[in-house]
């Protein structure tokens, strides 16, 4: 089938873990591997899982208080002094509040500041729309020099964190709060800028990022039982986009669906539409947040409401076929 090892229990009984937990392990490993790695946090150290690093390397941890603008600009100064700074907060606040500082002091200066936006997406749940960052993929993707990485599960987040530390450059790393299914394995690959075909198909390409890749796998399985052969393309790096893998899939299937726990405007959906419009025009169905804010509710309730579960994605994809 595919070269990408998938957990055999993913469709029946997947293991669950918050993506941010993988980041916490990855940062600790990166800190062990390279003493230039430092960490900064704005009063959310355990939430963002930086406490592992803080406990192990207290001198290399900086608590900035609730001051996200200062956090990333201090990090730019630390990067200039030779460090590889990881900064963390909720994505709603960083990069939500400090976008200009990230642009001017990290990105324009090409300093290897890593902006770690935890608690992204609607799975934040009960905290409501103010805390559900859905615009981050769009605002970070548009920034020159910036890499945008949204791991699909906690194991991939661990790999991505180590990969970023080993190849320092301005980066945005998107994490989620809630426990989410693990589809990858200890042997699955991760390389910055590479998209992976998780399952082959003929009729439609399900192109997903972050938490939505698990749901894409579920949707592909359901579609298969209805006679639609869906290919799942996992895109953990939204920028730089792996155009070759995505185009090869779309050229084969002739049909694209993008799936993201983010605004469909400007995010992965936007990126794929820009690509197809330029290289291979096809109909692209964009699933995600449709130009509105989220709301308070349980994570599962919200995924249902905004039609971002495997079952509802399969229904919408099937409906897309009917309307075509």
């Amino acid at each position: 089938m595919s070269g990408y090892p998938i957990d055999p229990n993913v469709l029946t009984n997947p293991a669950l873990e918050p993506i941010r937990f993988g980041f916490g392990r990855g940062l600790l490993a990166a800190g062990e591997a390279d003493e230039r790695v430092v960490a900064l946090c704005s009063d959310l150290t355990e939430s963002t899982q930086m406490h592992h690093f803080k406990n192990r390397f207290p001198q290399r941890f900086v608590e900035t208080g609730i001051a996200e603008q200062n956090m990333v600009t201090v990090a730019a100064g630390m990067a200039h002094a030779g460090k590889i700074p990881f900064t963390s907060s909720y994505a709603a606040f960083s990069p939500g509040r400090n976008w200009e500082q990230i642009k001017t002091t990290a990105s324009m200066n090409r300093q290897p500041v890593v902006v770690v936006g935890s608690h992204a997406g609607i799975n934040v749940g009960y905290d409501g729309a103010t805390h559900q960052m859905l615009e981050d993929l769009a605002i970070m993707r548009v920034m020159p020099n910036m890499r945008v990485i949204a791991p699909g599960d906690s194991l991939e987040a661990e790999r991505a964190t180590c990969a970023i530390a080993a190849d320092p450059a301005p980066s945005y790393l998107r994490l989620a709060r809630d426990k989410t299914p693990i589809f990858s394995t200890a042997d699955s690959p991760f390389e910055i800028g590479v998209a992976y075909v998780l399952s082959q198909g003929r009729d439609v390409s399900l192109i997903s990022t972050g938490t939505m890749t698990y749901h894409a796998l579920v949707a592909a399985s359901l579609l298969d039982s209805r006679g639609i052969s869906a290919e799942v393309v996992h895109v953990p790096t939204v920028k730089p986009l792996d155009e070759d893998v995505i185009l090869a899939s779309i050229r084969k299937t002739g049909r694209a669906v993008t799936i993201e726990e983010a605004q469909i405007i400007g995010g992965l959906g936007g990126a794929v539409c820009e690509l197809t419009a330029r290289e291979h025009p096809v109909k692209v169905q964009r699933l995600g947040m449709r130009d509105r804010y989220g709301e308070t509710g349980g994570p599962a309730e919200l995924l249902e409401k905004f039609r971002l579960t495997g079952k509802l994605i399969a229904e919408d994809v099937e409906r897309g076929f009917q309307s075509a």
């Binding site: 430092v38 900086v62 603008q69 200062n70 600009t73 201090v74 990090a75 730019a76 100064g77 630390m78 990067a79 200039h80 002094a81 030779g82 460090k83 700074p85 200009e100 500082q101 001017t104 002091t105 324009m108 200066n109 090409r110």
Partner: peptide, 29 residues
């Protein structure tokens, strides 16, 4: 702009971010 001219330590213009960068550098030292 740092990329443009030797001797410029950091790109600036949007106000208020020099002190933080200087502090970050000073903290490392």
């Amino acid at each position: 702009e740092r990329d443009a001219l030797p001797g410029v330590e950091s790109t600036s213009g949007p106000l208020g971010s020099g002190l933080s960068q200087a502090a970050g550098y000073a903290h490392v030292l």
